[in-house]
């Protein structure tokens, strides 16, 4: 299977999030969104669809807030009803905010459907994130499925023992589940001790730690990363000194770059 280099995708995600939060024109935001769309099409992300589905609620909330609160600044008033005024300017502005959000969520959707958790850890290792926090996170990631299974079984144990959880008030319903929580806490900590013993035997914490999986970037990938990273200062310089909205060009570039990076990686 052809997969993009997780490091490239990670950098791409950071840049898209950064630019989406920073840009201030609808056209730029739309181009950015379109860029993520194209990439999403390339990677056939199932998770991306779920992301977009669930972000619609928040997106519509954002639209409402901006429309109602902006007070309809500008000249072209489209709609007026008591205190609600909607002008074409405020509508465009609200849409920009919505697509800002959608572009970011879409980028995250692409990221989740292409990069596995293990690769993300490798990327973070490469970025020199301190290893203690990473190892802690990985351990909890590996015990989490075990604990969810425990949680399910504990619920079943108490059901068979005759616990009745379906009571009326919230307090009673929580109270009925207390033994479950106690049992889960104790079981988790109990497992924790065995894990600690294993961690000790595997020689951690260690000051010599040297991550095995290294992300190797080929030349063209290095160039892509370089271009992506340089987009950020470039945007600020251009937007500030020349008042130019050059982003459209950059965004198109982003799209193609991400697409290329998929083509070429093993």
């Amino acid at each position: 299977m052809r997969v993009p280099n997780p490091f490239v995708i990670f950098v791409w995600l950071c840049v898209v999030v950064f630019l989406s939060l920073a840009v201030l024109s609808l056209i730029s935001v739309l181009t950015l969104f379109a860029a993520t769309l194209v990439v999403a099409l390339f990677v056939h992300g199932d998770e991306w669809k779920i992301y977009m589905k669930y972000s619609t609620i928040t997106a519509s909330l954002i639209l409402c807030f901006n429309l109602l609160l902006s007070g309809g600044w500008g000249n072209n008033v489209l709609f007026k009803y008591y205190f609600i005024t909607i002008s074409s300017e405020s509508l465009l502005f609200s849409l920009m905010m919505v697509f800002k959000f959608l572009a970011i969520v879409s980028a995250f959707g692409v990221f989740s459907s292409t990069v596995r958790i293990e690769d993300l850890i490798t990327v973070l290792e490469r970025l020199r994130i301190p290893d203690k926090a990473l190892v802690t996170a990985v351990i909890s990631l590996s015990v989490f499925p075990v604990l969810t299974k425990d949680a399910k079984e504990i619920t079943e144990v108490f059901y068979v023992r005759g616990m009745n959880c379906e009571k009326k008030s919230m307090r009673d319903r929580i109270k009925a589940r207390m033994p479950l929580l106690i049992s889960l806490a104790e079981t988790a900590l109990e497992r924790g001790m065995d894990l600690a013993q294993t961690l000790e035997l595997r020689g951690y914490p260690s000051r010599k730690r040297n991550p095995w999986k290294k992300i190797k970037l080929q030349l063209y990938e290095k160039i892509i990363v370089l271009i992506l990273v340089s987009l950020v200062p470039a945007y600020f310089t251009l937007a500030y000194f020349f008042r130019l909205q050059m982003l459209e060009i950059f965004s198109v570039m982003l799209t193609s770059i991400a697409a290329i990076s998929r083509r070429c990686v093993e």
Binding site: E118, V135, V138, D194, S206, R209, N210, W212, K213
Partner: peptide, 18 residues
């Protein structure tokens, strides 16, 4: 209770990395 990593490969590499 004796696995710390998420994949087999990483689990086996872990002591050597340390």
């Amino acid at each position: 209770n004796q696995v710390l990593m998420t994949t087999v490969e990483r689990e086996i590499a872990f002591p050597l990395e340390n």
